[in-house]
Amino acid sequence: MSLLTIEGMEAAEMSRLLDLADGFVEVLDRPVPKVPALQGRTIGMLFYESSTRTRMSFERAAKALSADTMSFTPSGSSVSKGESLKDTALTVGSMGPDLLVVRHGSTGAPWRVAEWTGLPVINAGDGAHQHPTQALLDCLTLRQHFGSIDGLRVAIVGDIRHSRVARSTAQAFAAMGASVTFVAPTTLLPVDVNGWPVTTTSDFDGLISDLDVVYMLRIQQERGGGDVFPSIGEYVTRFGLTRRRADRLPVHTMVLHPGPMNRGVEIDPAVADGPRSLVTKQVANGVAVRMAVLFDQLSGAGSR
């Protein structure tokens, strides 16, 4: 069974994975943070987009479970010689991995890899579509801090249109009972969010005193779509989490960011490093969540 999307995953299933992740948080706290759970299993990693935290996080997770990894990145590989995704997937698949972790710039690529290879696939981000382990690590982070996600008021702010994080995390938060608001200019909102469990606004200041969580997103210039706002300066004025704006947040409100951050654009450095920030916690939880997902896929309930 692959993990391709958070769409349609029920709260009980997410909670089960988060409980599993809690156990691995404890493992990672040990003097020797390693268990033999996946000894002898091999995980193939196909990362077609540049990635630091997600790729390293999966590698760290695999190794903490004693699994072997084989990594593939397109630069300096057969891809630069013109090999197709299908051929690369079949090649890597033939080397005997038990599971593939796939990141790709195009929507649906992990689905296609699963179809071609017949192997379980974890989607580590496809285009602007889905990033399910990010959604789970964000849920874990909120659950740890607030005790429960149910009833939290969350604003996801910034480039929603080009964000797979927003698409995945908003659905997960909403499934766990949070009320989610997308905050962005129209040009950075998805064209049609009818039926999504979210409300939308372009008035960040209007809701800033009524939030428990502010989730900031980076402007994804690499996903194209043309000019989407007049200038960085104007964007920061309306949608940046500046120090002044952060000062208006309720005292208990926490700040998340999936990284990489553009300091001084969507988030002020003082806020990113300040007491409200859960950013490093997110990264740490990413390892535990990926351990949970890998374990679940290869020897837990998800493998059946």
Binding site: D192, G224, G225
Partner: peptide, 21 residues
Amino acid sequence: AGHGHMHEGAISSRLGMIGLP
């Protein structure tokens, strides 16, 4: 049309693909 890949609407929004209106 831009770099649209599919019809612009609810499904392109959900799939995160640039729409062609």
